[in-house]
Simulated assay, not measured.
Amino acid sequence: MPWKHWSAERLGLALAVLAALGFSFKAIFVKLAYAVPQPVAVDAVTLLALRMAFSLPFFAWMGWRAHRAAGGAGLDRRSLVWVVALGLLGYYGASILDFLGLQYISASLERLILFTYPLLTILIGVFFFGKRLGWPEGAALLLSYAGIGLAFAHDLHLTADMRTVLLGSALVLGSALSYAFYQAGSEPAIARLGAMRFSALALLVSTFATLAHFAATQPLAALQQPLPVYGHALGMAVFSTVLPVLMTSAAIRHIGAGRTALVGSLGPVMTIFFSAWLLGEALSWWQLGGAALVLSGVLLIGISRQRTTSRPAAAAQPAKPPHLAAHR
């Protein structure tokens, strides 16, 4: 293999690993912000508003680039409806449910539940778009939800309040479902607008919806937080949103979308170990077994899709890049 090709592959793999590391840190930043000592802990809406506000300059720059690339053309009514609806589902609705869920369950369990959104996307395709459920998808579902069951039992063992674990798990599962609907519904929008333009507009819709939610439900004084809260929100915006998005895009250019997605499967395992190291969360064989099952399910789907897209008929079509994954 020529040196330049080998070097590009190594660079792509390194970028994919760094992106997975950045995304896996989101739950850690949220938990650290909730734990900052103060009379009343920062609420989910305020923390999400800070994250999106810090990310807004990047989203605006991306939207401007996409607008210029499209020749300054505006959106027709149908495209506008799709962008607004999917932006609200994918980044606003999913993120707010995720942040609320992290108030009740461990970061490790949150990451495992959230990581099932590719499987939920497949189920949505089966129930709403007439797609078929093959044996790899069925096996992946069984593996992943068996893994979540193990991780759920671990959290339940550590607390006497079953309602807390149930509520947090339900909120995060709602987050994964919301993002799965975004994934399933975004394909026609991407076909009309292009991946970059659609993702930029959806992120901007989500940002303004989040800020409007904050303005409608929280006093302006809620933005007065201790410096560590601002630091964690800024870290979330830069290291768990903006940089991973850029690194994921660069990794896809070097090693393709399929391999980048498979490397991203490292995220839940990273979150489990960082949760134990930085947050002091208990690490058990139940969690590790649950993580192994969830990862096996997601990898089974990834390998199955990679084999499908490697066929000659599919190879002629350009690979659809994953969306910017700010929710992750």
Rank of each mutant, 00 (worst) to 15 (best):
S296G: 08
A33I: 11
L158C: 09
K26L: 02
L102F: 07
A14I: 06
P136C: 09
T116D: 05
L47M: 07
F198Y: 04
L109A: 07
P188R: 07
K320S: 15
S24K: 08
R68T: 12
S206R: 00
S304Q: 11
L166D: 06
V172L: 06
A151Q: 04
S24F: 05
Y34V: 07
A191H: 13
Y145N: 09
G134V: 12
L288T: 02
A160Q: 13
G280N: 10
L141D: 07
R311M: 12
G258Q: 08
R163P: 15
S7M: 14
A180Q: 02
A153W: 07
S206P: 02
L89N: 01
L171N: 01
L15S: 03
S106Y: 04
W277M: 08
L167Y: 06
R132Q: 10
L50Y: 00
A216N: 14
S95L: 05
L246E: 03
A325Y: 06
G63L: 01
R65I: 05
F152L: 09
R78V: 15
S106I: 15
S7D: 14
L48E: 00
L167T: 08
P188K: 10
S144T: 07
A35N: 15
A233S: 05
A209S: 04
Y104W: 15
R65D: 10
F29R: 00
I272E: 01
W285Q: 10
G185L: 05
A16Q: 06
P228M: 08
T46V: 12
D161I: 14
R197Y: 00
E110P: 12
L279H: 03
E281L: 10
A250D: 14
A160E: 12
L158Q: 13
L150Y: 04
A49C: 06
G258W: 06
A200H: 00
G168H: 03
A151K: 01
L243W: 01
Y92I: 02
L234H: 03
S95G: 10
W277Y: 14
G289R: 01
H323D: 07
G130E: 06
G72A: 14
E137P: 09
S199H: 02
A16M: 12
S95T: 04
S304M: 14
A19M: 09
L133Q: 15
A35M: 15
G90N: 04
G267K: 02
A35I: 12
L133M: 15
G302F: 01
L166F: 11
A180T: 05
E281D: 13
H327C: 12
A319N: 12
L112K: 04
G93Q: 01
L15D: 01
P39V: 05
F127V: 14
V30W: 00
V30N: 00
L89Q: 03
A94H: 05
H254S: 11
V245E: 02
D43T: 09
